[in-house]
Amino acid sequence: MFKSFIAGILLGVALGVAALYYVPAVDQVREQSMIEVKPNGGNTESFHINVPIDRIMVGAPNQQVALPLGLEWPSNNLFAGIRAELFKIRNAKDIVVGVASRVAASGGERGDIIEWVLHLPARGSVYLTMQPEAVIGGYRVGELRAGTREFSLLQGQVTERWIVDTAASDDATAGRIELKTEFVGRLEDQ
């Protein structure tokens, strides 16, 4: 009986280790990546944000209605020229795949800035800096400044544009922000 007790201890430890090793502590849901591969080996991916339903926060001075309700945006003059927004972001199938922040600020002599951070939990994050002025055609061009995990070895461009929802239905959104990325592996890593 003592031998079976000792065997049970060893078996318990082994089972515990096996369970901790083989059963993932975290299992992120990963939606299928809707990527279009380009002839040069790069890839194009389109994300969008339905406004206003995907807006989590609009932080800006002197807003008539706070979003979310109860948000107390700092009245400090330091924040006078800042507009910070948080969103949920969707893939081409209109499925939420991550969250994003957009910071726009008037930098005075340093010039204006517009930046995005897209955070896709199952894949990684990207940091995008945009040119403040929209180019002909009504879209804004930016570049990938940094990425984490599967985006860490990429470089490329991104565009953002505002698309008005012209649908006449009652549940139509005001429009959507479209972000289109074109990333390719860095030459030194290929």
Partner: peptide, 29 residues
Amino acid sequence: GIGIKFSSDSESSNILDGAAIVDSVWHIY
């Protein structure tokens, strides 16, 4: 200034290694 932090539980978490990992990013202005 202002800081925005996104953090997600990481699939690289492994209790055997004492790793309760969270992948996070800060966007700071």
